[in-house]
Design a binder for these strands. Structure first.
Lengths: 200, 200
DNA sequence: ACCTGAACACCGTTCAAGT
DNA sequence: ACCTGAACACCGTTCAAGT
């Protein structure tokens, strides 16, 4: 597992192959299959290890704040190892080690007046939002890093038809700047506000 | 492109390789490279084709409803071809053909009293939520289909420590049922409510 | 038990050579 | 212009054979 972590940090997750991992660990590819079932098993274990290694944050007393803190902790943990996105799409997170986040959010929602059913709904909305933010932002970053040509997407907004897409055309060249901003936290706040029962 | 579509629909997106595609199209793999740059180029074009093929829905007059309708249309379009998730993680949507959705949401947000900056923020929140929902739900479905063993995740909730995870333990075996529900629409509504300026 | 070399059945992509 | 066979540099995984 340590060799796999080194390999990913050094060469990127795309370079993590059974053959390279064997070389990094100083053994033969076939030997690996005595310790793991297959490659997906390896990725799942890496994901769980990473989740276990991130400390649980101090949780505020207010339930709304507690929900936000739990979601943010998981989000930030995922964001530090962006290659996890590739595993997220192959295997769900919410391995045992991340269950505290689920518990915290569900509990906070119940404290805010949700039924258990509604609380699960709140958790799911937050989880969708979080996964989506990571997936989209990671891919945007990767594409920016890979392409020498200046993004193709960033330049496209300068040549839009104002008749058909008036607001986008008006935004024009401000688009890259606006979409580069980190809005996870404020979007999360809005989502929580919308999902929880409204203040009396 | 038609051959690629047939191949995916028949054998699944994992089976879409340059060699198989060439066989399906009755030509040689090398010939393909005269018509596309590389495999990512092929996937991008498939994505754009699919987005173009989905009709634009009738849009309600109320701006909030309009935002919800645009997001739902894109969401449903993605949901009909779940393999797109794999491309979404390799390449952003928001190809030209989907820009109408961006325009609709941004315009609706402005009509609700947002500044252009806030309107972009609204769009991004909705996009994150939508991508996340598709990614998570598609993978859950795939895993259910692949594994003969009964999901491992669904059974885990029956043996949780009530001392550490009281709410999850209490939910217990209702978890699979609750998470199987389609809550995209109501979560979207909550997100929009939270993101837009509040009613006076 | 633990490890391995050889092999199987594949990949995406390139490139010189053909029509 | 359009197409191709052969080849390159890889994959994940299996399996009989070794210690």
């Amino acid at each position: 597992m340590a060799a796999a972590g080194r390999l990913i940090d050094r060469d990127g997750w795309q370079k993590l192959t059974m053959r390279r991992l064997a070389a990094e660990a100083g053994t033969s590819p076939t030997t690996l299959y005595h310790h793991i079932r297959d490659k997906e098993d390896l990725l799942t274990r890496l994901l769980d290890d990473h989740a276990d290694s991130t400390p649980r944050p101090d949780l505020p007393r207010d339930p709304r704040e507690r929900i936000a803190a739990a979601a943010t902790a998981i989000h930030d943990s995922l964001a530090t190892w962006p290659w996890i996105v590739e595993i997220l799409t192959a295997d769900d997170l919410t391995g045992d080690s991340a269950l505290w986040m689920v518990e915290t959010i569900v509990a906070g929602a119940v404290d805010c007046g949700c039924t258990p059913e509604q609380a699960v709904h709140v958790y799911r909305g937050i989880w969708y939002y979080t996964v989506g933010e990571i997936v989209v932002r990671t891919n945007a970053a990767r594409r920016r890093a890979e392409s020498e040509r200046p993004a193709h997407r960033d330049t496209r907004f300068r040549s839009l038809d104002p008749a058909e897409l008036p607001h986008l055309a008006a935004l024009g060249e401000r688009w890259p700047e606006l979409t580069a901003r980190d809005t996870y936290a404020s979007g999360l706040r809005a989502l929580i506000d919308g999902l929880l029962p409204h203040h009396p």
